[in-house]
Nucleic acid binder design. Structure first.
Length: 522
RNA sequence: GGCCCCGUCGUCUAGCGGUUAGGACACCGGCCUUUCACGCCGGCAGCACGGGUUCGAUUCCCGUCGGGGUCACCA
């Protein structure tokens, strides 16, 4: 039975790199009919775990990465919170102690630090002297009488090598002598990550530990723990990490300022911030930025696009396939096609997956997708008025591919809740109405035609305008642009006939009049 | 700095001894068109370097260089 896990620590947000790791775990489990579980690494948690975990679980649900065991869903090996398994780790530490694979250490932090600094000064590798190691009851008594408290350290081998068979990197060798006697249990009795992780992976029967490369150098000590405890080793697969846009550094939330200097990243962020502001989202950079998955959900990315993009960050099927449904990616996924080199996160490529995903979405579905943005921006009431359906459908159809992410609909809110005063693009007004000598006259004439067009729909308007062009003996461009600017204030937008129909006769006439007055006055 | 990992267009990648080094995103042209967007066509652009091995190296080996990860009583 294949069993994989993703082990987030409750930090309050879901990191994009973490999702990629989780995705590969999920895919591997699904592909082999195994189980994917979520384990909460909260050994160090000072905060409210549930509160910090909620956004993470929410992110998983949004992405469609369902877990078979873990928080909220439970499972046969629960609880899946490390903070609730401290006694298990403690007895593992006892076992290690009894077997001589660990020892109680009474050194103070300062003493260890002094040894470390001495080694550094002498330019040699730091290896703990084990001077305060207590292996007998008498030793313990003696140290305790000095007022010292003990932590538990691993008694690492000081010679020999360890070969790790990694599913992605194949064989990796380590010298035991380079390893430190890591602390696995604090003086207060709480246990640390490495011990907890190994014990959990064993107890939860994890068959494949698929995690980011930064854990590769932790693996020897984990192997040591596992072997000391008599556990069979899981298969390891160390994934390349997700790198910063345009660089090879590991993507990190803390370096946001730096990423913002990348034009594509900055553009994505700015776009998102604008939408967030419009829908009244309290968006501090801490909780809302393109490194955090929630950002994409909030601004209207499709989870399929995000997943598809992430899939290809470090994995590929062949030389051409890029679009995968969930079923296809599950069927196609394999660890041996995972790349070794880090892959940098490219917002522009993500955007192209998003565009394609939006293009595949039927208009009716798009209406439902886009509606909440209008509601949150206060443009459409909740519950929505009953005639909103057809109106929105017409808008979505007219907008076509211009709505690339959900929040983009707000750009066109004017068609749903028209503003009283037009926001004019003065350059467009100059170019299309003021400058062409005949524009005002033509616009005035065409306005009278518009007043009579019946019905006021796109097809009829199309015919009416062409008839007008013919009777006036003008080029179509002479009236189309002027009209668009007159009714929208802008030089660019939807097809003219859709625009007119969307606005309705009264509004079109009113706006043309308004524009004409403005132009004549100046 | 020690240890470990990695190195094909700007970016994501295909390639597993013989290819005009392929695709995608981005970018640049053009077409379509009432603008924008879409779409279509075309273009630019890469094997880090040096030694081997071999009839032949992007591909295998070694070295150099470069990039990165990691060195906690964090996870």
């Amino acid at each position: 039975m294949i069993r994989t896990r993703f082990a987030p620590s409750p930090t309050g947000y879901l990191h994009i790199g973490g999702v990629r790791t989780a995705l590969f775990n999920w895919l591997f489990a699904r592909k082999h009919g195994g189980k994917f579980l979520l384990r909460i690494d909260d050994t160090d948690a000072q905060r409210n775990v549930n509160e910090a975990l909620a956004p993470i679980l929410h992110g998983f649900r949004w992405l469609g990465l369902d877990w078979d065991e873990g928080p909220e869903v439970g499972g046969p090996f629960g609880p899946y919170y490390q903070s609730q398994r401290m006694d298990v780790y403690r007895s593992a530490a006892e076992k290690l102690l009894a077997a001589g694979f660990a020892y109680r250490d009474f050194a103070t932090t300062e003493e260890i630090q002094a040894e470390r600094e001495a080694a550094e000064r002498e330019k040699r590798q730091f290896t703990y002297s084990r001077r305060w190691m207590a292996e007998t009851e008498a030793d313990c008594k003696r140290f305790e009488s000095e007022g010292r408290a003990a932590v538990v350290r691993l008694k690492m081998p000081r010679e020999g090598t360890l070969a790790i068979d990694d599913l992605i990197r194949s064989r990796v060798d380590f010298d035991w002598a380079r390893e430190q006697d890591h602390v696995i249990q604090r003086a207060d009795g709480t246990c640390l990550y490495h011990l907890a992780s190994v014990v959990d992976d064993h107890d939860f029967q994890i068959s494949h530990v698929i995690r980011a490369e930064e854990h590769l150098s932790n693996t020897p000590r984990q192997v040591f723990i596992a072997q000391g405890l008599g556990y069979p080793l899981p298969q390891y697969a160390h994934l390349p990490y997700v790198a910063e846009p345009g660089s090879r550094n590991k993507l990190s939330k803390r370096k946001l300022d730096k990423y913002l200097k990348n034009p594509d990243f900055a553009k994505l962020n700015e776009h998102g911030q604008k939408i967030a502001a419009a829908i009244g989202l309290a968006a501090s950079a801490e909780t809302f930025n393109p490194v955090i998955v929630d950002f994409y959900e909030q601004v209207g990315y499709l989870s399929d696009a995000v997943i598809n993009y992430l899939l290809l960050l470090g994995w590929s099927l062949d030389d051409k396939t890029e679009d995968f449904t969930r079923e296809e990616m599950i069927a196609a996924f394999s660890l041996d096609r995972v790349n070794k080199a880090p892959a940098s996160f490219d917002p522009a490529k993500l955007a192209s997956f998003q565009e394609r995903a939006m293009q595949r979405m039927p208009a009716k579905q798009k209406v439902a997708f886009v509606l909440p943005y209008l509601q949150r921006a206060g443009i459409v009431s909740s519950p929505p008025p009953c005639d909103i359906g057809p109106k929105l459908l017409a808008l979505v159809e007219a907008a076509g591919d211009r709505v690339k992410i959900g929040g983009d609909i707000l750009e066109y809110a004017d068609f749903i809740a028209p503003a009283d005063a037009l926001d004019y693009d003065d350059k467009a007004v100059q170019k299309r109405i003021v400058k062409p000598p005949e524009a005002v006259e033509l616009l005035t004439k065409f306005r009278e035609h518009l007043a009579k067009v019946e019905p006021f729909d796109a097809a009829t308007l199309d015919r009416a305008l062409h008839a007008f062009v013919e009777s006036e003996g003008i080029a179509i461009g002479q009236i189309v642009h002027a009209t668009r600017v007159a009714v929208t204030g802008k030089g660019v937008g939807f097809g003219l006939f859709e625009t007119l129909a969307l606005l309705g006769r009264e509004r079109c006439l009113g706006r043309i009049d308004q524009t004409l007055r403005k132009v004549r006055a100046s």
